[in-house]
Amino acid sequence: MSETNQALTAEQAYQEDNDSALGFLKPQFHEEKFPTVQIWGYIGSLVLTFAAYLLVMNHVLPPVALLSVILTLAVIQAGLQLGVFMHLKEGRGLAWQLIPLYLVFLIAIGMVGMSIWIMLFKSGVS
């Protein structure tokens, strides 16, 4: 921004601050009348959680199959939560949603992967 002693109006400053690529950052307000999607998303999350819980508690599957099934349920639930509660579908350009998502995956995989790496020694100790 050029140095100027003349006070900008709020609108001008806002335009200078945010170029056209960042225009989506402008506050957008719209009120949903009734959060149907969110309620179904909530119920869906609960169903997926209890499905995993019951599978584990009732020992209906052999260990490897059980692990793959509950992992699948977890991935479905993560997708559901991202779509319903994290506004993944709301159109402001997929590129803007992907960068934070990559970051999230990086951190999550870093935490899980490093934890596995750290805890591997246990197989040699116990």
Binding site: G110, W117, I118, L120
Partner: peptide, 18 residues
């Protein structure tokens, strides 16, 4: 700060690499 947490439990016995 996300990559340093093991220094609170070096003595737990994870390998020298960790």
């Amino acid at each position: 700060s996300y990559g340093t947490w093991v220094h609170h439990f070096f003595t737990m016995g994870a390998g020298p690499g960790v």
